[in-house]
Amino acid sequence: MATETTAEGCEACPAHHAGNLIKLGVNMSNWDYVVALAGNPNTGKSTVFNALTGLRQHTGNWPGKTVVRAEGGFSFGGGRYKLVDLPGTYSLLSTSLDEEVARDFILFGQPDVTVIVVDATRLERNLNLVLQVLEIRDRAVVCLNLMDEAKRHGLQIDDRRLARDLGVPVVPAAARQGEGIPLLIETLAQVATGQVVCKPHRLKNETPAMRKAIDRLVAKIESVYPDLPNIRWVALRLLEGDKRIIEAVRTGELGDLSRGTPGDPGTLSEVTR
């Protein structure tokens, strides 16, 4: 991934760069970073995507509006960013057809930065996915969207505290109004270029038995496939008996799986005998 090719120059003074934002639309020929937009369904991912790229992905107030991946891009501070809007997903651990697109991209698409869009009014539920993503991804930004709704419902959210607890930057936003979007761009650029280093939260309350089991399996996989990304996650999936991962391990295509881009999942060929 072309992470080295960015201009450094003025990155130290990000405040001046909001004006540098050139909206690129879908010109994908040449990009430096890939940014994935993940999050629970209906948290405003597509709205954030539209605000960042100037495109017009369909949005709607119900879970499951986006079912396929959409791509766009923007450039900022000399770096060119490819942005990928994903279908909403509740969890990386259990998936339906539309969610699989999101899961596969986060795991195997290897985005440079994962932006997790969360609904500020349903924080606890959204943190489930955030924590799962942080388990396996080092570079992440949490976009605390729908702040206007949170205010309307009388909720106050301490984003600094949240950022400290999660170990990644947290940007409050109201994407539909465009509030917080400039800051989001700056922050994700800083994370992408490595100016801000994340120390993502890792699960603390694991039972000893769980931790022992995970560690043992991780060590085993590491000894066999030292270069595999997401070893922890593969271990988790094996412990849960995920048939797809088991199959991938058995046939030895696990290595390919980690490099390959996910295919188009929409077909029903298996049931159409």
Partner: peptide, 15 residues
């Protein structure tokens, strides 16, 4: 485990 952490984090951040 995940939800225990999630509710701890959320409790501290939301008022």
């Amino acid at each position: 485990t995940i939800y225990t952490d999630a509710s701890q984090v959320a409790d501290r951040a939301v008022s």
